[in-house]
Design a protein around this nucleic acid. Structure first.
Ligand SMILES: [Mn+2]
Ligand SMILES: [Mn+2]
Ligand SMILES: [Zn+2]
Ligand SMILES: [Zn+2]
Lengths: 133, 133
DNA sequence: TTATAAAGGATAATCTTTATCCTTTGTTAT
DNA sequence: ATAACAAAGGATAAAGATTATCCTTTATAA
């Protein structure tokens, strides 16, 4: 059970017990959606308000402590900020995996073709994971 | 003003005036969200119900007549189904652009690393478009 | 034409997310 | 350690988004 007190403060977020537990849940689960997170939090905080979950998710996003990943035909999941990476989502078990891919070639090709100044890449593959096939 | 009657029927969708207008709106605008689509539809159908928009969007998605594109930190947009492609979204003017990119190298690398059977790729770049910079 | 399943409109119901208000608490400075 | 205070939590209302229901209308095929 890692202590996220300093990490939260680095992102200008008070280190409340609720936020520490949310951080831990994301650390343990990797990628988690609002409903699953709420269920986990209820085990530790019998009377936590769903509003607290939403308020903290939004503040953590604004302060870049966490990132949102939009999943095709499913709910968004959230994860602790880390080095830039891409995602794989299994259509069967719904699990989301990280993957590091070399995208510089594709990115510069996209900038060249379009004239865009690109500052963010969101790449999500959908399929069937190793266990599920 | 293209006639989408046959195209709708090919996807097992009755060609109603409302659906033809929705198809046309997506054809003309390229990528459009629910609210913008509703506003456009209201001009042609003074008393169209928002429920009709939702019901048709969902049926069109189920029958693969249209596709949903999830936009980071923004609402989803919808577009007529066409050849597989990637997207660029301008963070300033919010416009969404199509782009064709060679992703086979990245895709096979992802499959190899992860052991996934990948059947869908969703790639969205965010940045500033040519006009806005 | 006619028959009929499906679609549209109106509206209620059901999520989902945010706002409000008051109490509690984490943090900083004594 | 204590006090001060802005910020956070909980309860709940409000607002927003999406879906369900019910009845009328219509697109399609016989
Ligand atoms: Mn991730
Ligand atoms: Mn497109
Ligand atoms: Zn799986
Ligand atoms: Zn722009």
């Amino acid at each position: 059970m890692i202590d996220f007190t300093d990490e939260l403060r680095l992102h200008n977020l008070k280190a409340t017990p609720q936020r520490l537990a949310m951080s831990d849940a994301m650390y343990v689960n990797g990628h988690i959606n609002i409903d699953a997170l709420y269920l986990i939090m209820l085990k530790k905080f019998h009377s936590i308000s769903l509003a607290t979950i939403y308020k903290n998710i939004n503040l953590m996003l604004e302060n870049s402590f966490i990132q949102e990943v939009k999943i095709p035909q499913d709910k968004s999941v959230y994860e602790l900020s880390k080095d830039i990476h891409s995602h794989l989502v299994c259509q069967k078990c719904k699990e989301v995996f990280d993957i590091n891919l070399e995208l510089e070639t594709v990115l510069s090709e996209a900038q060249q073709q379009s004239g865009f100044k690109i500052c963010k890449t969101s790449l999500v593959f959908s399929g069937i994971c190793k266990k599920c096939q």
